[in-house]
Computed example of a mutant assay.
Amino acid sequence: MNKATKTLAVSLSALSLAASLTGCGPSTFDAKGKIEDPTIRGAQCDSKMFRAVKTGDEVKVQAKGNTVAMGKVGTVKLDDRSAAGHGYICSFDFTVTGVPAGEKFYTVVVANQGQKEVSEEDLSTGKALLETPHLDNKPA
């Protein structure tokens, strides 16, 4: 490696470091949220026979019509909301790592069961809520 090549390599490394420290470089975030699927008392939320969504199903995050990151549906729990008049809900967590930041809205596609547009703020703070009866049933 000659002196000019070494100087260029050092300059590019310094420029890359400066960009990442100032936030000018590419940045990503982990998209987090919940998927809620109404059910009946005594239901098995992890049943593969009757659930629209199940643990391990694919979750895609799209920006401008292109898939930018993929993850999986995570753990599930049965929430009893009958006292509030809402019945029983299977509540699934999801996380999708490495979503490129900078879009105001993203489309989240769940297990090819439907999709919903969600803000970057809600995805990055874990406030994204997708409800299976309210997903647009036109998966991308």
Results as ranks from 00 to 15, higher is better:
G74Y: 04
D79T: 05
N137S: 13
L78V: 04
K104S: 13
L15Y: 02
K116S: 11
G25M: 06
T28E: 12
T95K: 15
L12Q: 13
G42K: 04
L12T: 08
A140C: 06
G74E: 06
A63Y: 01
D79K: 13
F29W: 02
Q113G: 00
E121S: 15
A31K: 07
V110Q: 01
A101W: 02
G114M: 03
K54W: 07
L15E: 04
S20M: 15
G85L: 02
G23T: 11
G126M: 06
S27P: 00
V10A: 13
K127V: 00
T22F: 09
T75L: 08
V10F: 08
S27V: 04
K34D: 03
P133W: 06
D80S: 03
V110G: 05
T132Y: 07
V59L: 01
T125A: 11
D80N: 11
Q115D: 07
A52I: 02
G65D: 02
T97A: 12
K48F: 11
K77L: 10
T75Q: 12
M70F: 01
M70A: 13
C45S: 01
C90K: 09
G23K: 10
A69N: 06
T97S: 15
R41S: 13
A43I: 01
T7C: 08
I40M: 10
E36N: 11
G102I: 00
V68R: 03
V53L: 02
D122F: 09
R41D: 09
V73G: 01
S20W: 15
V118R: 02
D57L: 05
V61R: 07
Y106S: 10
K116L: 08
F92G: 05
M1I: 07
R41K: 12
F92M: 05
V109C: 04
K34E: 04
A128S: 11
M70L: 13
G65V: 03
Y106E: 09
P139A: 06
G126V: 05
R51L: 01
D37N: 14
Q115F: 07
L135I: 11
V73F: 02
F29E: 07
P139I: 06
I89A: 03
